[in-house]
Structures are given as structure tokens and as C-alpha cells.
Design a protein around this nucleic acid. Structure first.
Length: 640
RNA sequence: GCUGACGUAGCUCAGUCGGUAGAGCACAUCCUUGGUAAGGAUGAGGUCACCGGUUCAAUCCCGGUCGUCAGCUCCA
């Protein structure tokens, strides 16, 4: 048999002679495909385009548009970068250099500290090397051969990687292009020539194998594209993200601050930020009351007994602050609200008739976070969880989960997020609770999502030690994903606190307990919200909804009147009394992203109207005061 | 916490190869009363993050502390 059958993704098939390569097949299909081909999927395995095919196979030619195509492309670019680094810094030793979600990195060990300008040099070298059209060539070696090869290169990191490889499981492969060779499982681009546009983005410290006790390395992040437009778009995206940085906007719009002198990771809400937060929290509370929840308030500290019983002192110790002595007793500031809610549950005998109990609290918790991980509002040491605990009978758990999911979707939709992604995390190695319970709980999470027609991904073993969970990620205006909501089972606390209810049968039963946070934490949520809206909050959330701007001081009386009317309708309005020209004031309010400006001059005073100017849109004409009030009130009610 | 970079006026940043500092914006006062993105003049503002050390002299050099940033690790 000298011919083999190749089946394509669309189901069609074609005969080729034995030993044909995917590159040749692509060539036979079309010139364009051959040029864009990056890698091949042969029988669902990613292989080099130069791999000879010797038997009937399924084949898919992968281009940059496919996720695997990007991965291979970036992976090859990281090799190219290592090549460039080796030629500029001959002493360089290399760690790992994988593709990541957006781009690639390589950990390197060189004698000098790299700066941003060095990156440009490396970038130039990369382009130069890429244009040389060097072919990536795969070679398979025995372990011995591999060891002696990298010994001769004096590459201790690669040698360590090799020593960890099991030769029986897979061949040790190396890839070379020109005079650079690297240990690599592959696959790679056929040639460096396909790498056209490269940008090295940052350099920072890392550790060999992520272990701070081991060698310090430098990690260079970069990205590459086959088309110039793609690179430009990506750089525009990065710039846009930078512009939206909530830390920058928070300062610029006077929303919040962190006070160096008073402590890192602790947030101070200024009046404008506090106004936004107030609006969010009011909405949140009302929504919970409407959806069958009751609100709780609990203390901020509790005796060590509480945290011993909950297991926090053992399992969560590194995130808790040291105890404080009160009347010779140790008290701890709370890292979580759950034990308090449980105490309220236990404050009296519960019947199955009382269940489900849905108790919500905007509970402020304090957790120790390493100084290096603090980040604006997104990672702080004191934050307010939009927490709730649901205590229910086993039998009703699935309905409860469904309710939470629906409520969660409603909540996100209210803030303008419609793209949610669901993940189910299952039992980890180290876990409390019987496996039967885990399976049952995990199953009810799954079937809740299935009933709601929601697609989800499984994260095997990703659950907390105390129970399986659903995590929900949202996508913001820049398509970035943020993990926000979480719905978690807890088999641990009901047991530890010996929670009970009296069932229909008159016997004691253990309630099921679910922790859930929808927004996650108010701080983090507001950080994401600021970035999502680029600081331009919709009217209902905007800290200042209307700026009243008199054309000159002569119309101050009428401006005051307009302000008063709006204020009475609970619209947040500021009157700009500054002795400045109108253009100046408009510019100022525009850069402060206020949704509406009302320009007031002689015409308006005479006609008892306001000239309305909308953020980003400009002048939208005149309305009577009443008409404007109706318009903006409707927008506020409809969360526009 | 670790690695590296950084910390100068309310903000954004310049500057001093060691002789205690400057711009723009913001702010104040005055002139101007102006119709949809910056009118003009004048002025006030800084223990150059903090604590030590070296030096005749430190904002600058050295060490420490605190904080910020990019990552590592971790997470709401």
C-alpha cells in the first residue's frame, strides 16, 4: 500500500501517497492555506507540519485563527526570543518558555539586569533572526544523549527538566533552528519566517520552578502576530486597558484612596466613591429582600473559641491577623462571616418549617495578604463581601442552587454584564465530608446548571476542602474575564458547629449549608466596574448625575432653582459656580465623566428650560425642567 | 513574603555627576460676564516618603523602614 486516506474536518477524504506531510497536503489544497498553516492536528494530536503521515488519518490544518495555532505560534516565538537572547548574552541559561493565554514568556538566567531598552534590542535581533527563514527541526534523543547534549551546553535548568522526564512515556525531543537548540516537546512552526511582528512587553523577576528559595531568574513577556494589524490592535487594547486602570481613574475621579501612612490594602472611600458604593449597596439590599433573603449584621471580632470551632485557626491561619486580648481572652478579627451566621442559626431550635433560611450580609472581613500581592481595589486586606448563607434541607438543595443562579444572573445583568461563564469545581485530594455527600452535592450543582440550560466547564479537584462549588466569571467591556461570583457547598461547618433542625419525622437532621457571594467583594466589584465603564458610570450609578452650568454669574438664581428641583427628585446634582467661561466648565465636567450637563443662560431662563449636554455625545437640545426630570428619572429607574 | 524598579507641590512629571529645587494642571485673589472641550494677570504651595550612616555640607551616596509598580507565589 503506497497510498493512504486523509480525512478532513468537514468529513471529506482524499488519497495521498504514504509519507506525505501536512505541509504538502495544505499546499495541495490551496496556496493560502499553505501560507497560513502553522501546525497540524493528526488524529487529534498536534504535530509539526513536517511530520510524515504513514497511515490513514484524520487531519486538520491549524492556522493562527485557531487557539492551538496561536499557542504554537507564540511558543515558537519564545524559542526565537531565547535564540536572540543567546546571541546577545552568550552566558544565558534558559528555564521554561511556554505560550500563555496572550503571548509567551521565557525565564532566563543571565548576568545582567535587563531593562526595557534591552527588550528593544532583543526584539530587533528576533526580527533579524526570523527573517533568516530558519527551519525548526525536531530531533528525538535518548535520555543519555539529551543529558550529554545539555551538559555540553552547560544548561543546568534543562538538565534538571530532563532528569524529571520519564523516557518510557515519551521521547525526549529537541528543536533546533539555525544554531539554537532547545529542549522542547513541540510542535513548532515550520520556519521562523512566519514570525513577523513581535513586541516584548515586560521583564520581571521570577524563580526557577516558582520557588523563591531557588535561583532567581528574569522573565520576559512578549507577544507576536503574523499580521501588523493584529499587533497594532493588541497594543491598542493594552493601552485602553491602561487608560481604564481603576487605580488611575479612582484618583482622577476622586473615588477612593489608599493611605500609605495608615496601612496598605485598606481602602478609603471619598464622597464620590462612597456615593457609587451607596447606590450599589442599596440596590443590593433591596434586591435581596425581594428575592427571599433576610439581612443580618454581625460583629467584626469574635473569641478564639469561635475560630477554633470553625477550623479557621487551623486551616486559615496564615490569612488571619494576630489575636487581641480583651478581658484576658483572645479575640480575632473576622476573615469570614460564616461562623457568625451559624451562631445566629444556633440561637434557637430550628424546624424544617423554618428552612430554607437565606441570610445575607454586606460583611466586612479582614485577611492578611502578602504585601506583594496587594493591588488597588482588586486585592486588599479589608473588604466587604456581599455574602449570604443558605441553610436548607438536603432535599431542597437543587432548587436553592437554581434560585441563586437566577439571582446571580439578574444581579450581573442589572450592572450591564451579560456574558457569564460557569465553572464547577469538584472534590480535591484533601477534603472533609463523605464522598457520597460530595457526589450528591456536585451532582445537584451540575443538574441545576443543566436545568437552567447553562453550559459549564469542570475543574476536577478544584473545589475547596469543605465542598464543591460553582464559580462564575464575567466578561467586561474589554472582553477580560474576572472571577467574581461563587456558590460553595460546605460540609465542614454544619458538622463542626453541630447544626441541626428538627425534621418532619421529629428527628434531628443536619442542614445543608451554601455560601455564596454574587459580586464577590464590594471593593473588587467596584474596581472591575470602574474599568468596565472606563470611569463613565451609567446615570443610575454616577456619583454626580447632573452638573448645572450657568453661562455667566447673571443666571445663578435660575441655576439654583434648577438644582433645587432636581435635588428634590433625589437626583445628585452639582452647581458649577466657578467664575470661568462656559467652555472651560464643560471641558472640566466632561473629563470628570458626568452623564449630564445642563447649560443655563438667558434663553433657558426666559423659557424655563435647560440646554442638555450628554457625556460623550454633546449638545442634545433643550428640554423643559420637567421633561428633563422625567427623562433622567426613567433612565435611573431603568438602570441606564 | 521574594526579585527588580520607583517614591520630588493636591495631580502629572522635570531636575540636582553632593552646595536644601522647577514646569504644566489644580488652588487663591483680581480683571473679564463669556453660549457647548482650556480667557488673562498675580499669588500661595515642597523637612525632595520616613529613620539612621558617610560628609564641612545629603533630596542626590550607603543601610534600614514604610509604600507604590511589574512579576513570582496566592486569592474575593
Amino acid at each position: 500500500m503506497n497510498s493512504i486516506k486523509i480525512t478532513f474536518p468537514d468529513g471529506s477524504a482524499k488519497e495521498f501517497s504514504k509519507g506525505v506531510t501536512p505541509a504538502e497536503i495544505a499546499e495541495s489544497i490551496s496556496r493560502g492555506l499553505a501560507e497560513n498553516a502553522i501546525v497540524a492536528k493528526i488524529n487529534n494530536q498536534l504535530k509539526d507540519l513536517t511530520t510524515p503521515i504513514n497511515e490513514d488519518s484524520k487531519l486538520q490544518i491549524i492556522t493562527f485563527n485557531d487557539p492551538e495555532g496561536k499557542e504554537t505560534y507564540w511558543h515558537s516565538t519564545s524559542h526565537l526570543m531565547a535564540h536572540a537572547i543567546q546571541s546577545l548574552y552568550p552566558e544565558a541559561k534558559f528555564g521554561v518558555g511556554p505560550a500563555i493565554e496572550t503571548g509567551f514568556y521565557y525565564d532566563i538566567d543571565i548576568n545582567s539586569q535587563l531593562t526595557e531598552t534591552d527588550l528593544e534590542k532583543i526584539e530587533k535581533k528576533m526580527i533579524e533572526l526570523a527573517q533568516a527563514d530558519n527551519k525548526f527541526q525536531r530531533k528525538e534523543l535518548s535520555k543519555e544523549e539529551a543529558v550529554s547534549f545539555f551538559k555540553q551546553k552547560n544548561d543546568k535548568y534543562k538538565l534538571e527538566i530532563i532528569s524529571g522526564l520519564n523516557e518510557d512515556e515519551e521521547k525526549i525531543s529537541i528543536y533546533g533552528e539555525s544554531d539554537f537548540t532547545d529542549l522542547c516537546i513541540g510542535p513548532h512552526l515550520p520556519s521562523t519566517k512566519l514570525i513577523k511582528f513581535v513586541k516584548l512587553l515586560s521583564v520581571s523577576g521570577s524563580y526557577w520552578r516558582g520557588d523563591e528559595k531557588r535561583d532567581r531568574m528574569q522573565r520576559i513577556y512578549g507577544i507576536s502576530f503574523p499580521k501588523k494589524k493584529m499587533l497594532e490592535d493588541h497594543l491598542t487594547f493594552l493601552e485602553e486597558a491602561k487608560k481604564r486602570d481603576h487605580r488611575k481613574l479612582g484618583k482622577q475621579l476622586d473615588l477612593f484612596s489608599v493611605q500609605d501612612e495608615a496601612g496598605a490594602g485598606l481602602i478609603y472611600w471619598h464622597p464620590k466613591g462612597a456615593k457609587v458604593r451607596y447606590t450599589i449597596e442599596e440596590f443590593w439590599k433591596k434586591a435581596h429582600l425581594k428575592n427571599g433573603y433576610e439581612l443580618l449584621y454581625s460583629p467584626h471580632i469574635g473569641k478564639s473559641w469561635l475560630w477554633e470551632t470553625s477550623g479557621h485557626l487551623v486551616n486559615y491561619n496564615e490569612n488571619m491577623y494576630a489575636s487581641m486580648k480583651i478581658d484576658d481572652q483572645d479575640y480575632y478579627i473576622k476573615p469570614m462571616n460564616c461562623p457568625f451566621h451559624i451562631l445566629i442559626y444556633k440561637s434557637k431550635l430550628r424546624s424544617y418549617r423554618d428552612l430554607p433560611l437565606r441570610w445575607a450580609e454586606l460583611g466586612t472581613v479582614y485577611r492578611y495578604e502578602k504585601s506583594g500581592v496587594l493591588h488597588g481595589l482588586l486585592r486588599v486586606r479589608g473588604f466587604t463581601q456581599d455574602d449570604a448563607h443558605i441553610f436548607c434541607a438536603q432535599e431542597t438543595i437543587e432548587d436553592e442552587i437554581i434560585e441563586v443562579i437566577r439571582f446571580c444572573q439578574f444581579m450581573w445583568k442589572s450592572f450591564g454584564f451579560n456574558d457569564l461563564k460557569f465553572y464547577i469545581s469538584t472534590r480535591p485530594e484533601k477534603a472533609v465530608g463523605e464522598e457520597v455527600l460530595w457526589n450528591k452535592a456536585t451532582q445537584s450543582l451540575k443538574s441545576a446548571l443543566i436545568k437552567e440550560n447553562i453550559e459549564y466547564e469542570l475543574d476536577e479537584g478544584g473545589g475547596a476542602f469543605y465542598g464543591p462549588k460553582i464559580d462564575i466569571k464575567i466578561k467586561d467591556a474589554l472582553n477580560r474575564e474576572w472571577q467574581m461570583s461563587t456558590i460553595q457547598f460546605d460540609f465542614n461547618l454544619p458538622e463542626r458547629f453541630d447544626m441541626k433542625y428538627i425534621g418532619e419525622d421529629g428527628k434531628e437532621h443536619r442542614p445543608f449549608m451554601v455560601h455564596r457571594a454574587l459580586l464577590g467583594s464590594i471593593e473588587r466589584f467596584m474596581g472591575v466596574l470602574i474599568e468596565h465603564f472606563a470611569g463613565a458610570f451609567p446615570v443610575w450609578l454616577a456619583p454626580v448625575q447632573v452638573a448645572v452650568i450657568p453661562v455667566s454669574q447673571n443666571f445663578m438664581d435660575y441655576a439654583e432653582k434648577v438644582k433645587k428641583i432636581l435635588s428634590e427628585k433625589e437626583i445628585t446634582v452639582e452647581l458649577d459656580k466657578r467664575n470661568e467661561k462656559i467652555g472651560y466648565k464643560i471641558r472640566d465636567w466632561e473629563t470628570n465623566k458626568v452623564p449630564y450637563m445642563l447649560i443655563i443662560g438667558e434663553k433657558e431662563k426666559d423659557a424655563q428650560t435647560v440646554s442638555v449636554r450628554k457625556h460623550k455625545e454633546g449638545d442634545i437640545g433643550s428640554l423643559s425642567i420637567d421633561e428633563f426630570v422625567t427623562k433622567i428619572s426613567n433612565e435611573i429607574i431603568n438602570k441606564k
